[in-house]
Amino acid sequence: MKYMMLIHQGTSPTPQRPDEWATLPADEQQQVYADYGALNETPGVTPGLGLQLPETATTVRVADGRTLTTDGPFVETKEALGGYFFFEADDLDAAIALAARVPAARLGGAIEIRPIMEW
């Protein structure tokens, strides 16, 4: 079974926002790097590509043949996707256990687990 793991940053600090990131003690910062490193090394994990901050997003709609372009993500900024990776596992419990190890999940964010469509 293959899952896409969507990381919603929520209010969790990220190095991309230096002011917030600085509120984390140095050892916790190190731990976050170490945890993400360990995740990427976990058998079954295919790391995703890094995304820039949601503020850099552009949202596009087409209505009556006209392209409407707006600034910002489709959902609210703090609910926007922060990152993603893939995980191949036996079942949902394995994916839940792995999701619980993603630092964002314990720092104010959340992980959404989406099973990949199999044809």
């Binding site: 079974m1 036996d90 079942d91 949902l92 419990d93 256990a97 687990i113 099973p115």
Partner: peptide
């Protein structure tokens, strides 16, 4: 079915 929720007695940590 779609998310592969397991059919088993959960392991001790769960």
């Amino acid at each position: 079915r779609a998310a592969a929720i397991p059919f088993r007695v959960p392991p001790p940590e769960f």
